[in-house]
Simulated scan of single mutants.
Amino acid sequence: MIRGLYTATSGMLSLQRKQDSLTNNLANINTPGYKQDVGVMRSFPEQLLARIRDQEGPDIQGLPQMGGQAALIGRLHTGVYMSEALPVFRQGDIAETHDPYDVALLDNIQPDEEGNERRLFFGVARLNDPANDTAEPEQLRYTRNGNWSVNADGYLVTPDGYYVLNAQNQAIRVNDPDLPENNAGHTLEINQDGSMTYLRDGERVALGDQPLGIKMITNPQQLVREGTNIFRYEGDVEPVNVTEDPENVGFYGVKQGWLERSNVDPSQTMTDMLTVLRAYEANQRIITTLDGTLEKAANEIGRVNG
């Protein structure tokens, strides 16, 4: 009976964690580029129970007492736990915003030869000196949130304050306060392949010599979430610029003036939350029943001893 209490309690704790994950998904339903988490539930190892020394052997002087054969009772389940919450990197819907600093990343990159999933992300980083620093691999972070803005120094930044990087892992400067004639402002144009131009003296000129830093990550489940929309990569295969492989042409694109929405399905999430709630309540009733049974047994023992 006590084991039953522990099993039901572990179920309630894991369901609480899963409900928290679903609630976080629902709270970020309007966060651009957000990727929902899916809670992974696993069971603790089963235990095989047997009754040993089922029959005591004869007490013969000079011989060791031999117990009976173990009697198999059965398997005991020791509960479940939520081991991790894995993000789902499925492409979200895109919506038009008409803002030149909003960028949606369209991703249809196929798996590699070994069947590993491959996904695209914008490369971002925190830099102490964005005018001169190049982000090192350990500084790189990845996001699908293309809801950008221009900071006071004229650099493209994410809502979390990360600098948006180009293919050489350098910050992208849109406006230069010291050279106003070179300011792109709202004339910035980001092409489908990630190259950037702006209007100067009535003509389109390139903004730098590098396109956007669109990184292709193999096996994105090796990404670790930092905050809401930023990921850190801890895999073995180093992310590469998608523009480096000509075979990727036609399987990805950049759409300026659009935003990728969250890939959370509100209807499915609400259904999952109700399912988790019912399972939580079932475990709660089990604990209440076992507690009542134990109390009754304790009272019976008290009457017998009295």
Rank of each mutant, 00 (worst) to 15 (best):
R3M: 14
A8V: 03
G11N: 05
S14Q: 05
Q19G: 07
L49S: 12
A50L: 13
Q61H: 03
M66P: 04
G68P: 01
Q69N: 15
R75T: 00
H77P: 01
G79C: 12
Y81L: 00
Y81T: 05
S83Y: 07
S83A: 12
A85Q: 13
Q91F: 13
D93K: 02
T97H: 11
T97I: 12
A104Q: 00
A104M: 02
A104N: 04
I109A: 09
I109K: 02
I109S: 00
E113Q: 04
E114P: 01
F121E: 06
N128M: 09
L140H: 05
T143D: 13
N151D: 10
Y155C: 10
A171H: 12
D178N: 14
L188W: 03
M196C: 12
G202T: 00
E203A: 15
R204A: 15
Q210L: 08
P211M: 03
G213I: 05
K215P: 08
T218N: 06
T218L: 09
Q221G: 14
L223P: 08
G227D: 05
I230A: 02
E234P: 10
E234I: 08
D236E: 06
G253A: 14
W258H: 11
L259I: 04
E260L: 08
P266S: 08
M270R: 11
L277P: 03
R278L: 09
Q284A: 15
Q284L: 15
I286P: 00
T289W: 03
K296L: 06
N299M: 12
G306V: 10
